[in-house]
Each structure stands twice: as C-alpha cells, then as structure tokens.
Amino acid sequence: MTKLSYINGLPLVLLLSGMSTPAFAGSEDVVVENAWSRASIGVNRPGAAYMTVRNTGEDTVTLTGLTTPLAVMPQIHETKTNADGVSSMAPADEITIEPGQSVALEPGGLHAMLMKLQNPMIEGETFPLTLTFSDGGEVTVEVPILGIAARGPES
C-alpha cells in the first residue's frame, strides 16, 4: 500500500539499509495513515488532502510544514465553524503530536491545502506529499486521488 510509505529525510541508502536515525528526534517514528484527496477541476481551484499522522515513538514531534511537487503553495490549514454556522479557513500553526498520539487531517478540520496546483489532480492517480518536522526529519506519503465527491479514504 503506497498510502503507508514512509521515508525519512535521509539518503535513500540509509533508508534501504534499514539503519536507525539518531539524528532525528522523533519524526522517524511518525506514520501517516489513510491519506486521500479529491480530484480537482483543472488547476485554478485549490486542492485538499487528508490523513492521520501518528507518532509511534517516545518523543513529541512537531509538524511544521508540507512540500509537494503537485502544488507551489502547500500549507496546513484549519477550518473552523463558529456558533453562527460560519466556516472559515486559515493556516494552522505548528502541530505538536505527543508520543502515542495522532492528529487527523479530516474534512472540516485540519487539511493539507494545496494552493497553486502545477497539474490537475486526476482521480485514480497519486501524488507525493512530504511532511516536514521540527527535528529536520521528513515523511513522504503517496496520496491517492479519489473522486471530487469522495467522502473518505475508503469511498
């Protein structure tokens, strides 16, 4: 399953040799699950991707940003809906995940906002999304692109 692919910000050789990574405090123990996104109509509209980021290690990790070849400006956003029922969206600050905890990027809450798409997001394809952490580590996940009306990773 490409969804679970998980790569530290390390030379590929190190990864393939299966060596542990003492240089990074925590992010090597981050696992990304259930990543998915919706197809886009062309490239003018921003895309969004969702996933669960799980810290399986002993150290607190802090998610600081995103990179992807798919979008010039990927950003973690948070949607809030106030008591009047008005939804708004703004960049989220750093996201700290305690050991054993996970953070869900899911519709109506946190999302990976993909602004300035370089290519249309086509249903059935995938794209790589790299999560960067405060310890310098990175985790890259292949995000499946589902239909525009998709509701979650299994639909």
Partner: peptide
C-alpha cells in the same frame, strides 16, 4: 469502520491542537 477511528482520533487531535495553538485567530 476505519473512518470512525480516524474521526475519533480527529476529535482528540483537533482538540489538542486547538489547546496548544491557543492563539485565537478564530472566534
């Protein structure tokens, strides 16, 4: 059923994040 788990973690996660951010750009 998988989604249900994600949703539950989500509630906890978003709650934790909201607490930690605590900055208040939102109402």
């Amino acid at each position: 059923m998988q989604r249900r788990h994600v949703v539950q973690y989500g509630a906890a996660g978003v709650g934790a994040v909201a607490l930690m951010l605590g900055v208040g750009w939102w109402r």
